[in-house]
Design a protein around this nucleic acid. Sequence first.
DNA 1: GAGGTAATTTTGGTCGTACCAAAATGCAAA
DNA 2: TTTGCATTTTGGTACGACCAAAATTACCTC
Lengths: 234, 234
Amino acid sequence: MGDETRAADAVVSALEHQIVSGALKDNSPLPAERMLMDQFGTSRTVIREAISMLAGRGMVESRPRFRPIVRKPDYGTVLDATGNIVSHLLNEAGGIENMYRSRMFVERGLVRQAAQLATKEDIAALQQALLDNQSAIADSDRFYNTDVAFHGVLYRVPKNPIFPALHRGYSSWLAPQWKQMKRSVDRNQRNFEAHKAIFDAILLRDPDLAESALDDHLNAAWNHVRDTFGPNLD
Amino acid sequence: MGDETRAADAVVSALEHQIVSGALKDNSPLPAERMLMDQFGTSRTVIREAISMLAGRGMVESRPRFRPIVRKPDYGTVLDATGNIVSHLLNEAGGIENMYRSRMFVERGLVRQAAQLATKEDIAALQQALLDNQSAIADSDRFYNTDVAFHGVLYRVPKNPIFPALHRGYSSWLAPQWKQMKRSVDRNQRNFEAHKAIFDAILLRDPDLAESALDDHLNAAWNHVRDTFGPNLD
DNA sequence: GAGGTAATTTTGGTCGTACCAAAATGCAAA
DNA sequence: TTTGCATTTTGGTACGACCAAAATTACCTC
């Protein structure tokens, strides 16, 4: 190799192009290594290194002893691919708080936008999510899922795929902490009421009120996180 | 390997831990492959595959024929590692608009927050950035850099490392389009004036005015993008 | 001692062969 | 058609070999 391009890099680029263009179908296995060797005219070493790089990038999902599965990139897979690094960052001092505050920042904007721009369909989806949340107050596992779903509707209001992906990211990054938190019917009830306050403000088309209701809700949740985990979060 | 763990995965995990903990210093080269072979008691095949995966994850930066350089993860390296996928997503129909609108969303929130919470130091930094921007009106390359810097100050107001990293992400993701856009002294003057309007609103501690000024500015910029690239952006 | 050049060593990149265990496929029997 | 077994394919790993490029060492001159 006289020039600056490694054979493995060329294979990575070519396979990425095949994935993005659809020539390699999403959710399908990659061709076998020996077939790729023939296709690219390179050694198996090069193919395996290229596959490792693609796996690191999230373009394929690899599992021991199975063929790698194609993951056509979308904003969700982008954020999935960051999960490993993000989990390290969350373990640093202040890591969880920074992430949580960035989520609050985003959701403040989302409720303001919902108050200003939500369509009838958005309102209907929020209302349904609220009903589901209410019906799950006595069942904390279900309440958690419907809680996530209520917030998820907010991320769909801008009609931009980046936001639902971001919701998915937040849900997975912050899930380890959430899973450890005490839950109770009393707390579920209060959270449902906070969701309702947000919804009512959106119905009123009042961005400031919606933002304030969201702040109250997420600040209360944050205080609950701090009560659970203590000062080592700071 | 009878169980589900591949040797290369174990090496990846171990090296990640060494990178995150600082045992492998940021910006330093990884140990040589033959040394890693000794350290982990595995073949060179496994080491090279592990390094490829780490490179795909952004934990090391690899260049042909040179030792990989450690990149201790921060939110910047997370977003750097997504750059390749994001560029594909930007090439899809509507990709650029979605990204641009998500940036507008974030910056709306940032100017609101600045109007509410900016410290004296934030204000001083904004003012300096504004002066730099003004002094660069006749020099479009410098104007571009000071324009980016002015927005960058906004991303530092929340005192959360996620936002400066996000600014870095937006700057790099949207740079290819920006680089192709016509520039003129007249346009630079108008952009400077828009920055000043944002700054003045922040000084007034008026979030709505700041948001409105930002919207005017970024909508005008978006219209310029559309004029330059035509309808295939949609 | 400093600087420059040449020689040597180290290192990343690639190739091929080999072996093994696990997954997939093919075939025969019920 | 389903099940079980044999065979083939496939991913995982190891090893040795070779080469070109980068790094280090050795040597010489001023």
